[in-house]
Amino acid sequence: MLRDVDLSGYEKVTAKNIPWEKFITSGHRACQGCAEVLAMGMVMKAAGPETIVCNATGCMEIITSPFPQSAWTVPWLHVAFENAAAVASGVESATRALERKGKLKKRPKIIAFAGDGGTADIGLQALSGALERGHDFVYVCLDNEAYMNTGIQRSSSTPYGAMTTTSPPGKKSIGQRTWKKNMAMIAAAHEIPYVATASPAYHLDLFNKVKKALAVEGPAYLHIFATCPTGWRSDPAKSVELCRLAVQSKVFPLYEVVGGQYIITQKVKKPKPVTDYFKLQRRFRHLTPDAVEYIQSRVDEEYARLEAFEKATAPLEEVAEPPTEG
């Protein structure tokens, strides 16, 4: 396991020094209550102006780019669906070469944005390659749990039981048949310096995670949960509430993996039942009590597993010091 992660460049964000400047300006074309663009805006606030963005095909590309509603104030590349991480690798390597030759005084930060489909399905190969090669960039997966841009089709990040147009519930099917792919842990398995899950409902936590991800040398992966009122059939006014409920019901726990060490950043002391989270969305409306019970037990199990990970990877009390002379 990696242990030593240099976080010296990291400045903690508190309510007092919250970043205000927007790099995704308002007036973009997102649906009402889109938590994905909210999250992306927060990431960019934390990242600051010296950033190059590689954006995979998806809602965020469509809504932020057409003139005159173009929302970006930083250099921005739209790439194909599957290659955000690969293009970011190229950009990173090029800026590194320019720096080496003295043509660039300071390397810009490089952020790749992709949706859950562009990360967990079609983009997984490119992402895995980029993480393995160790490029110094941040990959942000904005997870709204289905292909929303093409009109709500299931992805491997869609939760069990959810209704989408390609997992229609009915006599022959419960909806999505498989459990959500655990992308954050897949990224962590690459033993990269920094992996975290975040939610726009916990903005300070999100800001700090972005700052840490940018501060580390090498690849970092952020998995951000984002409500999609259009696809989840939920009330746009309750998007942030849904993001918060997902954390409070342990459906989407917030944690970070720093050099292999798991740290749960939002401990859920009094968990809410998953039904509280489900009842605000119509995509789970068809679920029977049995199915809900199964989901509840699986959610509890996964959270317990995460706590076990935290315990197992905690630093030992007595760390063997390297031998010193004299």
């Binding site: 292909y147 009109g151 147009t165 390609t166």
Partner: peptide
């Protein structure tokens, strides 16, 4: 795999094939 403008073919198949 979903892609505009062919997704409807897939959506019909998802409903009908089972």
């Amino acid at each position: 795999y979903p892609i505009t403008p062919s997704t409807e073919i897939m959506e019909v198949m998802a409903r009908r094939l089972p």
